[in-house]
Write a protein that binds this DNA or RNA. Structure first.
Lengths: 227, 227
DNA sequence: CGGAGATTTGAGATGAGTCAATCGTGGTGG
DNA sequence: CCACCACGATTGACTCATCTCAAATCTCCG
């Protein structure tokens, strides 16, 4: 199950477009790749648990990964959903050495796993690698700031509308988008119970949002912005 | 009001203990200091607004700074409260060039303001500066992850108990701590309305927490952990 | 000591979670 | 190709947490 494998062409293409690896010099890219190996994991497979010693960080090549925390009573709260191109746990490169949350695959997924110590060493020698780390950290910080602000400012239907709008290619008129994953994942991502997401969708029906399976149809994007 | 001034001894001591500046070589520290100036700002003074072009990032030397976002209808949500030693807006060093939130002083405060472009240049030449930036970003990312997880997993009294426990010097028995700022700031920090914080404190009374002004008394720290 | 601002308290409204039952759907195997 | 099964999604009923508004009280600063 937990098979290590060579980097195939598709994975390589995704990896090089990652915010972490894009823009690296050839030399740096080669060095970074030598600190990496590929994992192919089945659905719902634990990648690491909170508190474990952190020796690897990851980039998602395909599939989706759920980062979450547990409460004492066993309730789960999602912190971030990572899709192709996203990296996670790089925040531990220059900080604590224990993972701060649990990570598990939400689908069958391919991951690039980087050896932290090796990347630390490379980053201290290659400026562009250090810069890539900083860019990646900055991006995450900004996206999680959005998450806090959304949680605190908006209701469930508003957060769902925001999510839809952020993925609509157009500024006005009709749009049709497809969820890249199950609704229960989206619910966790928005900090909602699945039932709450469902109700949010049905609230949005009167704003011109129709949901059928993973397909979401918006009558008028401009109108949805008023929610 | 917005007076620039020289770095006095107390400010200098705080600045050098910042996660951003501690551990820098003498040479790097000198270069970084040359990219910095000190601001003395009165209470409730806007430092920057969301969307403005970002040319400076900051370290708090004394006082407190509130980072927050506004909803369309004008409601405010705090994202982070920064105290002495904390830095903010460094996440824009290698990312967007517009501030992602509003910042205002919550008290009369002294700030160190760093020129982003100059720090970027220095970081590309001095490894230890780049490393300091990464360490600072990592720390923030981890702390805001805690914030999301707390919001999503815990109720108001639990979040307040967590806050108190994190500041108790002892593991068990009685403890006495002092809030470093107004309760309304703490409320925003925990994602609560001031009324909700007040009610949370009164809920915690039966767990041995007594509040008088800014003084918080805990009968038995070990017991509070059960909340 | 006075007064502005902060905090507390009460009452009511609302958003979201939980539990349970039902519905739909996609995948599997006959 | 169809029937069935398992799991995800939806809906309803209810509970609980937190917000809002308003009034009363407290506290700290000048």
């Amino acid at each position: 199950m937990n098979s290590n494998s060579k980097l195939d062409n598709r994975d390589r293409a995704v990896l090089m477009k990652t915010s972490f690896m894009q823009g690296l010099s050839t030399n740096s890219a080669i060095r970074v790749l030598s600190a990496m190996s590929v994992l192919n994991l089945p659905v719902r497979h634990s990648i690491f648990r909170e508190g474990e010693k952190a020796e690897l960080f990851y980039c998602v090549l395909s599939g989706y990964v759920r980062l979450y925390r547990l409460s004492h009573e066993g309730r789960e709260a999602d912190i971030r959903i990572c899709g192709p191109g996203d990296s996670f746990a790089e925040c531990l490169l220059y900080s604590d050495n224990a993972y701060a949350y649990n990570a598990q695959t939400a689908e069958h997924s391919a991951l690039a796993a980087f050896d932290m110590q090796m990347i630390r060493d490379i980053a201290s020698e290659e400026k562009d690698v250090a810069q890539a780390v900083m860019a990646s950290l900055s991006r995450h910080l900004l996206s999680i700031i959005d998450c806090v602000a959304n949680d605190r400012l908006f209701t469930a239907p508003q957060r769902v509308a925001n999510y839809i709008l952020a993925r609509c290619p157009v500024d006005g008129g009709p749009a049709l988008i497809r969820l890249p994953f199950q609704k229960s994942l989206l619910a966790g991502m928005l900090g909602l119970a699945p039932e709450a997401l469902s109700r949010a969708f049905s609230t949005l029906r009167k704003s011109g949002v129709t949901v059928r399976g993973r397909a979401i149809q918006v009558v008028d994007v401009a109108n949805l912005r008023n929610v």
